[in-house]
Design a protein around this nucleic acid. Structure first.
Lengths: 194, 194
DNA sequence: TCATGGAATGAATTTATATTCATTCAAAAA
DNA sequence: TTTTTGAATGAATATAAATTCATTCCATGA
């Protein structure tokens, strides 16, 4: 039953994620995390430098996973539209699969900003993926030329985050991934008749 | 030079906003706020119940102002498209005018969620305005009938918030309101060619 | 069976800061 | 000028929780 170092590290990280998601970083206590992880308070300090470091490691770890999945999703598409649809679907899928992560990414905006220089920055990677997709789409003739690309990228990311945020607030009770196609339709065609 | 009760109250509120925006709610201290407002620590407790109450009052106050402006902006438009454009422009304008507010609304998501039942909820009001605009637009024949309205509303709000968030991260260095028209164009027409 | 060393423990310590309240101040009234 | 009264002060207090570290545990190997 004894776990190796990595298993215990990830066990603490997972439970920290649950506690951070439930109470928020500042209201969460070391004791809550330790007791949920089934270890003593002091044990956390064998694996992490301090409380901040727990959140830092958590975000870094989760970011790495999502990072890879999104890159793969995009690589799986051929046309710009396929790549784009894959990216949005993957995004929704990953956040639906890990609600704690979704809550933390959404709630600890301030913290994320403070550390985003030392960490793989998921937003930056996302925006870069979108740059490539848009450029490819413009070459293919599938996407308008007269776009302010910087704005379009923020527009797209903001809207997905908004949709995820609503899903989180609703307690994750509906299928988030089902939003992918209607969402892509809105991005592509807008809301105007005709 | 002595201020009446209301002036002093608002002076504390403004300075609290600046400190919350700079350090975040939890890292901000009562002493910082008091000293920035030019009063003693204890004085804050003559005007506010406790630290939480300061943020609560701040949000409530700012929400009320923005609330009214947005309602007026929409009322000033005639067609759905005018109303919509006025709303987006007003939104960007108000947040550009008050960067501290923008930062706080963006950073204290968790806190906002925790109190949003006791407070005028700006998101809810916003989504309700959008419902009306979309419905009117569909009647006018300017907006598609085949829309999932719940999604469209979150899509729109999310995208504006994303654009504001980027502006905040960039230190508010460019003109946010200039984004209104290109943004509305994206909502209406999407990114697809043709 | 005993000895060893690294891991885990959790009570005690430290630190930080929110909050209180006895005291002071200052404006207006007498 | 003196008194009164409510506001303001800020040093002292209370509290909560992060962090430390002397002690205990336990798996391993002699």
């Amino acid at each position: 039953m004894q776990k190796n170092r990595s298993e215990k590290y990830h066990n603490i990280l997972d439970n920290a994620g649950a506690v951070f998601a439930k109470y928020g970083f500042y209201k969460a206590t070391i004791s809550q995390i330790a007791s949920r992880a089934g270890v003593a308070d002091g044990t956390l300090y064998l694996y992490f430098k301090n409380k901040d470091d727990i959140l830092y490691q958590y975000i870094n770890y989760k970011t790495g996973i999502v990072f890879d999945k999104m890159n793969n999703a995009v690589a799986d598409g051929k046309t710009a539209e396929e790549k784009f649809r894959n990216l949005i679907r993957c995004h929704l899928q990953e956040f639906q699969n890990d609600r704690n992560m979704a809550v933390i990414f959404q709630s600890e905006v301030r913290y994320l900003r403070d550390i985003q220089s030392q960490i793989k920055d998921i937003s930056k990677m996302y925006l870069d993926l979108l740059s490539d997709i848009i450029e490819q789409g413009q070459i293919e003739g599938a996407i308008r030329q007269d776009l302010f690309v910087g704005l379009v990228k923020r527009f797209i990311l903001g809207a997905v985050e908004g949709v995820i945020s609503t899903w989180v607030s609703a307690g994750g009770r509906y299928d988030l991934v089902a939003m992918a196609d209607p969402l892509v339709d809105l991005y592509l065609n807008g809301v105007k008749e005709g």
